[in-house]
Design a protein around this nucleic acid. Structure first.
Lengths: 164, 164
DNA sequence: AATACTATATTCGAGTTCGAATATTATGCG
DNA sequence: CGCATAATATTCGAACTCGAATATAGTATT
């Protein structure tokens, strides 16, 4: 199917159902897959995967947070976060203080090494993120941001005005 | 960290860095995670996962396509598609015609059962996708669609200004 | 105090995803 | 024809992801 002489030729990314006429859910998936892939390949030298980058960023922003806090922040399940955090502990980027005064809660924080690696990752990610806004005005970017937040909130929040 | 009296209280989805002021890459990830989760949970009764739904939709749109074609269409790697297709073959939603005239290429198509299940899935997905556009005008939605296509294309296409 | 409920953390099994590597087939070039 | 190159399909190892289930700890109710 490499040559266009074939009957079932697939469209390029911007064309047909893969272009602006496609389903919004499909376009969202396609955009995310592409950006995730670019991110993952840009981070390969740091040894950090992109879920690990997300978790490390959150631990850095909310030091002392728990596994369950991370799950809420990332919209992932507690099981998923457990795996990511345990991998980060193993390589020494994250450490846990097992005994706050109360609870069996593990308070998480970055190690010095983790902070160093995170700084490198952030520089790489910043470059990739800049590309996401080229070709769009400030007003257009604001629309996109509002849409993304709305899609993330789903029905739970911010849809409460449109009762039925 | 359940009560707001705690020092490190995490913001809700629409607030702070999780709102419209956050990084575009983070917002994209957040939106995708949330939509994927809603989709996965809505499809649970059909027995189809959301990557399986995506692959079945493509096989239905391009019958006779190969594993490598699916990889290009979905922006996934050939290894990933191999696993998904083999799971779909196992449950009998997809079948492969192993011997076209040329090549070792496997021509894929949906079984009758696969087509039936896909029809049910599409009805479910259509409802979820409608929610993605409520609260946005046609012009705003067009901006969002253009941005998503642009993010999917990355640098390869559509940054080249025009056609060849 | 005993019980019920909630939250937290973890384990298990299955599906998804990638990079690396391998085997096989087609094509192009000498 | 013979060989290099490319494309296709697959296997392997590792990480991510979820639902279900389990164990533990804190809170509330009776």
């Amino acid at each position: 199917m490499r040559k266009p002489e074939d009957a079932t030729s697939a469209p390029e990314v911007g064309e047909g159902k893969r272009g602006e006429d496609g389903h919004l859910g499909y376009l969202l998936r396609q955009a995310n897959v592409a950006f995730r892939l670019r991110l993952e390949r840009a981070l390969v030298d740091t040894g950090v995967t992109h879920p690990q980058f997300a978790v490390m960023t959150m631990v850095d922003a909310y030091p002392g947070c728990s596994n369950a806090d991370l799950a809420r922040l990332s919209l992932l399940t507690a099981q998923t976060v457990t795996v990511i955090v345990s991998n980060l502990k193993r390589v020494g980027f994250v450490e846990a203080e097992p005994h706050p005064v109360h609870g069996r809660i593990q308070q998480l924080s970055l190690t010095d090494q983790g902070r160093r690696v995170l700084r490198d990752c952030k520089a790489i990610v910043r470059r990739l993120e800049r590309d996401l806004s080229v070709g769009f005005s400030a007003q257009e970017e604001a629309v996109v941001r509002r849409w993304l937040v709305c899609a993330a909130a789903g029905d739970q929040t911010s849809r409460k005005t449109v009762r039925r």
